[in-house]
Computed example of a mutant assay.
Amino acid sequence: MTRRLNFHWHLRQIMAAHDMWKTTDLIPLLRERGVKLSSAQVYRLVADKPERLSMRTLISLCDIFDCTPANLIEPYAETTARKKVAGDQSVVELTHDIRPERARILDDEP
Score class of each variant (00 low, 15 high):
Thr2His: 09
Thr2Met: 04
Thr2Phe: 07
Thr2Pro: 00
Arg3Val: 15
Arg4Cys: 10
Arg4Met: 10
Asn6Cys: 12
Asn6Gly: 12
Phe7Leu: 15
Trp9Lys: 02
Trp9Ala: 12
Trp9Phe: 06
His10Pro: 01
His10Phe: 03
Arg12Asp: 08
Ile14Ser: 06
Ile14Met: 13
Ile14Lys: 13
Met15Pro: 13
Met15Asn: 03
Met15Glu: 03
Ala16Tyr: 14
Ala17Arg: 03
His18Asp: 14
His18Ser: 15
Asp19Ala: 08
Met20Asn: 05
Met20Trp: 08
Trp21Ser: 07
Lys22Ser: 07
Thr23Gln: 14
Thr24Arg: 01
Thr24Lys: 00
Asp25Ala: 13
Asp25Arg: 03
Leu26Asn: 00
Leu26Arg: 01
Leu26Trp: 00
Leu26Pro: 02
Ile27Cys: 13
Ile27Gly: 02
Pro28Arg: 05
Pro28His: 01
Pro28Ile: 07
Leu30Val: 03
Leu30Cys: 01
Arg31Ile: 01
Gly34Lys: 02
Val35Lys: 05
Lys36Gln: 04
Leu37Arg: 05
Ser38Gln: 02
Ser38Pro: 08
Ser38Thr: 15
Ser39His: 09
Ala40Ser: 15
Ala40Ile: 11
Ala40Trp: 09
Gln41Lys: 15
Gln41Pro: 04
Tyr43Trp: 12
Arg44Ser: 15
Leu45Lys: 08
Val46Ile: 12
Asp48Ala: 04
Lys49Phe: 02
Pro50Ala: 09
Pro50Arg: 08
Pro50His: 08
Glu51Lys: 05
Glu51Met: 10
Arg52Asp: 09
Arg52Val: 12
Arg52Lys: 14
Arg52Trp: 05
Ser54Trp: 04
Ser54Met: 01
Arg56Met: 05
Thr57Asn: 04
Leu58Glu: 04
Ile59Leu: 10
Ile59Arg: 03
Ile59Pro: 00
Ser60Asn: 01
Leu61Val: 11
Cys62Ile: 06
Asp63Leu: 03
Asp63Asn: 07
Asp63Cys: 03
Ile64Lys: 05
Ile64Arg: 01
Phe65Gly: 01
Phe65Lys: 04
Asp66His: 14
Asp66Lys: 15
Cys67Gln: 03
Thr68Pro: 05
Thr68Trp: 00
Thr68Gly: 11
Pro69Ile: 10
Pro69Asp: 00
Leu72Tyr: 12
Leu72Pro: 10
Ile73Ala: 12
Glu74Phe: 01
Glu74Val: 11
Ala77Asp: 06
Glu78Leu: 14
Thr79Cys: 07
Thr79Asn: 02
Thr80Trp: 10
Ala81Ile: 13
Ala81Cys: 03
Lys83Cys: 14
Lys83Gly: 12
Lys84Tyr: 04
Lys84Glu: 09
Val85Ala: 13
Asp88Ala: 12
Asp88Lys: 06
Asp88Gln: 06
Asp88Arg: 07
Asp88Thr: 06
Gln89Ser: 10
Gln89Ala: 10
Gln89Thr: 14
Ser90Gln: 15
Val91Glu: 06
Val92Trp: 03
Val92Asp: 08
Leu94Tyr: 09
Leu94Ser: 14
Leu94Val: 14
His96Val: 11
His96Trp: 11
Asp97Ile: 00
Arg99Ala: 11
Pro100Trp: 09
Pro100Asp: 11
Glu101Leu: 13
Arg102Ile: 15
Arg102Asp: 06
Arg102Val: 13
Ala103Gln: 11
Ala103Lys: 10
Ala103Val: 14
Arg104Lys: 05
Ile105Met: 08
Ile105Ala: 07
Ile105Val: 14
Leu106Gln: 13
Leu106Asp: 13
Asp107Lys: 07
Asp108Val: 02
Asp108Ser: 06
Glu109Ala: 10
Pro110Cys: 00
Pro110Leu: 07
Pro110Ser: 04
